[in-house]
Structures are given as structure tokens and as C-alpha cells.
């Protein structure tokens, strides 16, 4: 019967739909547990931060009375009032990873503009991710190490000073051809203005995915931003990265402000 065939063939649908629909009590216990553990960990981190701030405050009261302490005050002020922190104060961003709405604290990080070169700011979920700079390239990666057998989970921010976004996107896409199973066409979005394309290594749960974004750096150059994760992490790390990416802002040299 035709309806029996439908029922049987329906059994062959993609694994991700089967797992996502599974009753929580049967399969998602571990995920749920890890969600609770994550919340608990965040609370512990908040408490630790509070205690650390309290200790530092008490020590500072004593330390800054001394001559050595007074000399340090000026340097500390300089660090604390960094331009990016002034322009982009910490904020909570609403995201919905794996269907669960969360208010996640984000802090702005980035590169400060100089006299003739632009900088950028991006809000990072610093409880779960860390941003590092390696030879002029910025990486945002999970704090907790991921399984080394799985594709990388990271966001990469590269500045290409003398290449326009159109050229950068075309060249980057061409270089990837042949190595990836599927590469989408380059698409132009207007809000925010940027070019992007996606690459898929396959459609298995652990197949690598890359999202490539290209936007002007405020001059004649480009910021090339790459989101790397894998199929299973689309609704998790992928969504968190996109939430961070949406806050990416180029800071033009003329927007630099003089710090006191």
C-alpha cells in the first residue's frame, strides 16, 4: 500500500531530524545535563570573578597608598580605558542555540585603529570563547578543547589591506574549488553590506562547513571572516559564531578617540 511505503521510506530521513525530535528523556539527557552544568559553571565563574575583584579592590586600597602603587595607577588607567571598551561596553545578546533561548554576556574585543589603518570590534562570548592574535590574524576559538578528530571550530578574522571584497571573495572561492564537495555562489547582502559564500565537505553529521564573509575595511582593503564548524554544530557553535559575527564593526582611523 502507498501509505505503508510512505511510512517505510519516512524511516530513511536524515539522522539529524531523528535525533532532534527524540524525546529528551531518552537521548538528550547528556545534552541537558551539560546545559545545566554549563549554567552552573557560569555561576561559578561569576562568583570567582566577584571574589577576585573584591580581593584586588582590597589589595589596591593598600597598594595605591605606597609610592610604587601611585606610579602604577597611570598605566592601569590606560589599560582599563581602552578605546574599544569605551566605544563598545559589555552587553547581553539573545541567542537560540539548539532551540534554547539564552541571554549570553558578550564583551567587545578587536584591534584598535591607528593613525592611518582601520581597526575592528567584535562582541565575543568570553565565557565560552577566547580571541587570540597570531601573526596579525585573529582567532576566536572555544575555551574548552574540542575533539581533535572532528573538524575545527573557530572564527578567523583576516585583514587584506589592498584587496577589494569582490576580488578577495572571488580568489578565496577559486582556491577552494576541488577541495570541497559543495561551494555556494558568492552572494551580496546589503544589511550589513558584505559578500559571502558557504562550503560543505559533505552532508554527514561530522562534515566540515565554512562560511566566508568579506566586508570593506573602511579603506581600499577587506576583512575576510571565516566561520569553521561541522554539520552537527550548525545549531550550536555555528549559531553562536553568527551572533558574534553580526556585531562585527569596522572602526575607521578617524573614529579613533584620544584617551586621557
Amino acid at each position: 500500500m502507498k501509505e505503508e511505503r510512505l511510512l517505510n521510506v519516512f524511516g530513511m530521513v536524515d539522522d539529524k531530524y531523528i535525533v532532534n525530535a527524540a524525546p529528551e528523556s531518552l537521548l538528550k539527557k547528556r545534552e541537558k545535563k551539560s546545559h545545566v552544568a554549563r549554567k552552573r559553571r557560569r555561576y561559578q565563574i561569576k562568583m570567582l570573578r566577584f571574589v577576585a575583584v573584591l580581593i584586588i579592590a582590597l589589595m589596591s586600597v593598600w597598594f595605591f597608598q605606597t609610592p610604587a602603587g601611585a606610579a602604577v595607577v597611570e598605566r592601569v588607567q590606560e589599560q582599563v580605558t581602552r578605546m574599544i571598551e569605551i566605544l563598545f561596553p559589555p552587553k547581553e545578546i539573545t541567542i537560540t542555540p539548539e532551540g534554547l533561548t539564552e541571554e549570553v554576556a558578550h564583551s567587545a574585543q578587536g584591534k584598535e585603529p591607528e593613525a592611518d589603518t582601520p581597526g575592528f570590534a567584535i562582541y565575543v562570548d568570553t565565557e565560552q570563547y577566547t580571541m587570540t592574535e597570531e601573526e596579525g590574524i585573529f582567532y576566536i576559538r572555544p575555551i574548552e578543547a574540542t575533539d581533535s578528530l572532528l573538524p575545527a571550530i573557530e572564527m578567523v578574522i583576516i585583514e587584506l589591506p589592498d584587496v577589494l571584497p569582490e576580488t578577495a571573495a572571488k580568489e578565496a572561492r577559486e582556491q577552494m574549488e576541488g577541495d570541497w564537495e559543495t561551494i555556494t555562489e558568492i552572494v551580496r547582502s546589503t544589511e550589513p553590506p558584505r559578500l559571502y559564500y558557504e562550503a560543505y565537505a559533505g552532508f554527514a553529521w561530522d562534515s566540515a562547513i565554512e562560511e566566508h564573509y568579506f566586508c570593506k575595511n573602511g579603506q581600499q582593503g577587506t576583512y575576510h571572516i571565516i566561520l569553521r564548524y561541522f554539520m552537527e554544530a550548525t545549531e550550536g557553535a555555528g549559531m553562536r559564531f553568527r551572533a558574534m559575527l553580526n556585531t562585527f564593526t569596522v572602526i575607521a582611523p578617524q573614529d579613533a578617540i584620544d584617551l586621557p
Binding site: R5, L7, N8, V9, F10, G11, M12, V13, D14, Y17, I18, N20, A21, A22, P23, G99
Partner: peptide
Amino acid sequence: DLSLADIFNQFLSGLSEERRNIFMRRYWY
């Protein structure tokens, strides 16, 4: 059957997450 399963996947991907999960719970589980 394989091509039909592909169409089902296409259909499921177009549903909202809630409707998809409800559909899966009824016709898969």
C-alpha cells in the same frame, strides 16, 4: 525510495523546528 527520502528531507528542512519535530514524533517515532 532513496529519491523519495530526499524529497522528505527537503520537505522537513522547510518546516519550522517545532513543526518538524512534531511531524517526526508522529511519523517516525
